[in-house]
């Protein structure tokens, strides 16, 4: 597998869409190619950073305004 081919397959690998044969070829390539190892590791890390559940918490005042608005709508519909 060449570096260009490895790069094309990393995204499919992350989606669990690679055949066993291509997975083995990708593992083998990334195990010996420092550049592709960096690309693989930092792509995984990119996804991990965006998935950190501690980031972007919803402020309580925003939640309160949402629920106040919805309750007004419920009330309008009820009367």
């Amino acid at each position: 597998m060449t570096c260009k081919e490895a790069f094309q397959e990393i995204s499919k690998y992350l989606d669990g869409e690679l055949s066993e044969e291509l997975k083995r070829a990708l593992h083998e390539h990334v195990g010996r190619c420092a550049h592709c190892k960096v690309v693989f590791d930092t792509t995984v890390k990119t996804i991990e950073l965006y998935c950190d559940g501690k980031l972007f918490p919803m402020p309580e005042n925003i939640r309160n305004r949402l629920h106040d608005l919805l309750r007004r709508k419920f009330h309008e519909r009820a009367v």
């Binding site: 690998y13 992350l14 989606d15 669990g16 593992h27 990334v30 195990g31 190892k37 693989f40 995984v44 996804i47 991990e48 998935c51 950190d52 559940g53």
Partner: peptide
Amino acid sequence: HYTSMMALEVNRLEKGTDRLTGKSM
């Protein structure tokens, strides 16, 4: 071993778990 690490990563990604805590999302 690097291949073990990759297998672990993809396992976590495929299972839909929080990539940092391992908790179900």
